[in-house]
Design a protein around this nucleic acid. Structure first.
Length: 229
DNA sequence: CCCTGATTCGC
DNA sequence: GCGAATCAGG
């Protein structure tokens, strides 16, 4: 599988929408969870509630498939348990799941006022995502949001449709239209229990193997099949 | 054990 | 660039 524009768009949206890498991989199909994560990082989007936080150890040397030949005397400065970096402070960015957890109200954002904030102009792509300019490196996001960001609905056009953000284990995930397009949404019907799709779409997703010679005409593909323009 | 994302590194 | 292997935390 290759990373087409549409697949990348879906990945980006789902990633930013809070879906897990597994869910994204599952939705895209043909790729592993690792592939999704790897791609996400390469795309520049990252940083999500990761179980592994600062202070990791890079001690373990990775050895993949049987190493064919080692480089002679190619010492790699790898393991470096020492040199504890003291630069990053543990910015407690708890999801604030239990709001009343701490009676001590940790100071909220000092609201980094930016008097010189340039009125950046973003172009908005189909589906409502904000395009990044060429050298527009996503800004470091200095103020770590104390709570999980919930992206607003991309567009009112699909307010009554089942958007990516509306997906859960109980609604049909059959895609309607093409990712990245303004009206892209999901079926949203109640799922056939045990399946990711409703009864109707299960019938499309899972088709019985017919005996030879009794082939069906066209197996309908997800995403509406090949694009017709 | 399961899950998660991060990272490395051979391809 | 890609992604399996591996890691590490929950």
């Amino acid at each position: 599988m290759s990373w087409t524009e549409e697949r990348i768009a879906t990945l980006t949206k789902m990633w930013e929408g809070g879906s897990t890498a597994s869910q994204i991989a599952d939705e895209l199909g043909g790729v592993s969870r690792n592939a999704v994560i790897g791609k996400a990082h390469r795309l520049g989007l990252k940083s999500r509630p990761s179980p592994v936080k600062a202070g990791e150890k890079k001690a373990a040397a990775k050895k993949k498939v049987a190493a064919p030949a080692k480089k002679p005397a190619a010492a790699k400065p790898k393991a470096k348990p020492a040199a504890p970096k003291a630069d990053t402070k543990p910015v407690a960015a708890k999801p604030a799941g239990s709001a009343a957890a701490k009676p001590v109200p940790q100071n909220s954002q000092p609201i980094p006022n930016k008097p010189d904030a340039l009125p950046k102009i973003h172009s908005v792509g189909p589906g409502g995502f904000v395009r990044q300019g060429p050298g527009d490196q996503q800004a470091p996001i200095p103020p770590a949001p104390p709570r999980r960001l919930v992206p607003a609905k991309p567009s009112p056009d699909i307010a009554d449709k089942t958007s990516l953000l509306d997906l859960n284990d109980r609604v049909c995930r059959w895609p309607m239209g093409h990712p990245g397009e303004p009206d892209f949404h999901f079926c949203g019907e109640k799922v056939n229990p045990g399946f990711p799709y409703c009864v109707q779409h299960c019938g499309r997703a899972y088709q019985a193997q017919l005996p030879r010679g009794a082939r069906r005409p066209p197996p309908p593909l997800p995403f509406g099949g090949p694009r017709v323009r």
